[in-house]
Amino acid sequence: MIEIIEKKDVKTVSNEMRLEFAAISDNEAFARMVVAAFIAPLNPTLEELADVKTAVSEAVTNAVIHGYENRCSREDKVSMYCAIRKDVLEVVIADQGIGIENVKRAMEPLYTTRPELDRSGMGFAFMEAFMDELQVHSEPGDGTVVRMYKKIGLSSWIDSEE
């Protein structure tokens, strides 16, 4: 299992949280609420909030229906780790599912391994579009770790410039 937290940069972390929940689709909304509540003190704009919620929703959905193949078993868990360093949010979503064989191919827009589930294949594309940085680590049979970064609260920077 890939280590979720990197050992570097731990001193600059001002706030962090770790959460583990069942890999069922009901928890997609729950994960969105969690990350929204976590970044609320940073005073994000509505657009930044929506961006982060969308990216987290995509990552959790991937873990549920691809990592654990949508089997909705209570034993399957999705791990979520969030950290704030100054005004940069780090979100890590990890699962111990089947993993991704070809990460580069998986991240191609419109590519999906589950077209019968009405999947658009745009999950990673959305995550890349709405977050500043996206890293995906996966080993077949050993799970997947999705790490995303976004700078929150740019509006305060614009205000101080004026």
Binding site: R32, T54, D118, R119, S120, G121, M122, G123, F126
Partner: peptide
């Protein structure tokens, strides 16, 4: 108020 790529999947399907 919120939509992710699943909404795209509904429309495409």
């Amino acid at each position: 108020t919120f939509m992710d790529s699943s909404g795209i999947g509904i429309i495409l399907g």
